[in-house]
Nucleic acid binder design. Structure first.
Lengths: 245, 245
DNA sequence: ACGGTGATTTGACCCAGATCAAAACTGAAG
DNA sequence: CTTCAGTTTTGATCTGGGTCAAATCACCGT
C-alpha cells in the first residue's frame, strides 16, 4: 500500500478514533488491488472475507433476484463497504462490481474482528458507522415508498446540487442506466422524467443537469431532512442566545 | 417495573451479554408505561430521549411525507426500537404509534450512552444489533425493488408461515390496511392480490391465510435467503461429513 | 339487538410507469 | 475515419396498480 494513502483512510470516521498501534497493525495486514471496470468484487450470498475500502474509482453495490437486478448503492472514494456482513460474519446481501478502474484496499475480517474486540474506540466508531448505514437505507426506503419517480428524480438532483455546494449546474456522477436502477425506475422512465423536469425547474444536456428554477424544483421534490439527509446529522447545538421558549 | 419482566429483557441479544451491574443500573433508571391503542409515542424529526422496549402489545413504525404515510415496520414484544437514533443522538427518521394496548419500557438515552461507553460487551451487542437492523432494511429494499406486489405478498405469506413453524394455516398479525402499507401497496391492491393468490396456492378467509399448494406459492414468491431471511443468519457450520466437492 | 364507525371488498376507471421496438448518439478499438 | 457495441432517446402501446365510489362486513359501545 502507498503510505500516501494511509492518511485518507485514517481520516474516515471508522478509523479516525482507533489507536495508532491498532491502525498500523490493521493496515499492515491489508491487501491492495487495482481492478479494471466491470469486475465482480463480491457475489451476494458468499461469506465475507475482507472489509473493502474504495480508494479510487467507483463501485456499484447491487442485488439480483430471479433474472432481475437492481442497484442498491454507488460507493465512491474514500469509503468502506459491506461492513455489516463482516461484523456479523453473515452472507453478503449485495454483490459489488467496479464501474471504472478502481483501487481497493482489503482488510481481512479476521484482523478486523480481533482489533474490533480489543479496541473500544474502534468498536465505538463501528457503532456510529453502522447506525449511519442503517439510517441511510431507511431514508432510501422512505424515498422509494413515498415519492413518485419524478419527485424522486427531482430530489436526487437537489441532493447532488447540495453535495456540490449548492451549484445550479452539476454533472451526473454515473451512467443514466445505473441512476435509473438506483432510483427504482427504467432507463426509459428516467429519460422521460428528466425531460419532463424542464417544466419544474431543471433541464438536462447530456450528463449535465442545470437547475433553472430551484424554487420550482423544490416545490416538486419537497426535500426533507428526514429523507434527503444530510447523512451526518448531529444534535442541534444548544442555543446560546437568550431564552426564546 | 415488574421484576418478572427483567428476564425477558435480559434475554434480548442487546442486553444478554452486558454485566449484571450495568444491566441493573440501566433498568433501575427505566420508566415503564402502558399506553392505549393509537397513541403517538415518537414523532419523526424529534430528538431521541429514550430507547424503547415493547413488552406487550404492538407498535407501528411509520414515516410521513407531504400528506403521504407509509408503514416501515411493526414491532412486537419483546424488542427494542429506534436504537440507531439514540446512538447517533440524531433526529428520529420514523414515527411510532401503538396499535394495541401496549406496555413500553423507556431507557433514558443518557444512561444508555454512558453504559454503552464503559461496557465493551454492551457496545459489542449494540454493533450486532445495528448490523441486524441494517440488514433487515436492506432485505426490505430488495423485496420492494425486485418483486411485484403479488410476489411480495406471496413471499410475505411464506415468511409468516415459516415463523409459525411451517404451518399451512396462519393468521395475519396485523390489519390488512397496515399490511398493505408495509408491503408498499394500497389496501385495494392487497385485497385483490390476496384473492388472486388462490391460483398460486394460497387462499384467504378473513384474517386467516391457508397455504393450499406450497410449491405453487414458492414458484411465485421464489423465496431467497438473501431477501426473506432468516434474520439471524450465521456462518455455515464446517462440513463434518466426508469431502463432497 | 341496534347503530355507528371504520375495515374490507368489489367494481369501474384511469394513469404512471413498464415494455417493446427502433432510431440516434457516444465512445472505444482498429 | 469506420466499425461496432453499448447507451440514451423517442415513439407506440400496454398493464400493474392506483384512485374513486359504493357496497359489505366486523366489531364496537350502548
Amino acid at each position: 500500500m502507498r503510505d500516501s494513502e494511509l492518511p485518507a483512510i485514517r481520516r474516515l470516521p471508522l478509523f479516525r478514533t482507533m489507536s495508532e498501534e491498532n491502525f498500523m497493525s490493521l493496515t499492515r495486514a491489508a491487501y491492495v488491488q487495482t481492478f479494471p471496470p466491470q469486475v465482480l468484487l463480491i457475489e451476494e450470498g458468499a461469506q465475507p472475507d475482507f472489509l473493502h475500502i474504495v480508494m479510487e474509482g467507483a463501485v456499484e453495490l447491487f442485488a439480483g433476484w430471479h433474472r432481475r437486478e437492481t442497484t442498491m448503492a454507488i460507493v465512491r472514494p474514500v469509503s468502506t463497504f459491506i461492513l455489516a456482513a463482516c461484523i456479523k460474519d453473515a452472507p453478503y446481501l449485495m454483490s459489488a462490481r467496479t464501474l471504472e478502474k478502481t483501487r481497493i484496499i482489503l482488510l481481512p475480517v479476521g484482523d478486523l474482528n480481533s482489533i474490533f474486540r480489543r479496541d473500544p474506540d474502534f468498536a465505538m466508531a463501528t457503532v456510529e458507522e453502522l447506525a449511519s448505514c442503517y439510517r441511510r437505507v431507511v431514508r432510501q426506503s422512505k424515498d422509494l415508498k413515498l415519492r413518485s419517480t419524478r419527485e424522486r428524480l427531482a430530489a436526487y438532483v437537489l441532493r447532488k446540487s447540495a453535495d456540490a455546494g449548492g451549484t445550479a449546474s452539476l454533472v451526473l456522477p454515473v451512467e443514466k442506466r445505473l441512476l435509473a436502477s438506483f432510483l427504482g425506475m427504467t432507463p426509459e422512465s428516467l429519460s422521460r422524467a428528466m425531460r419532463s423536469l424542464k417544466d419544474d425547474g431543471a433541464k438536462i444536456d447530456g450528463q449535465r443537469v442545470i437547475i433553472t428554477d430551484r424554487a420550482a424544483l423544490e416545490a416538486l421534490a419537497r426535500p426533507s431532512i428526514l429523507i434527503d439527509g444530510p447523512d451526518f446529522e448531529r444534535a442541534e447545538e444548544p442555543d446560546t442566545s437568550s431564552a426564546t421558549p
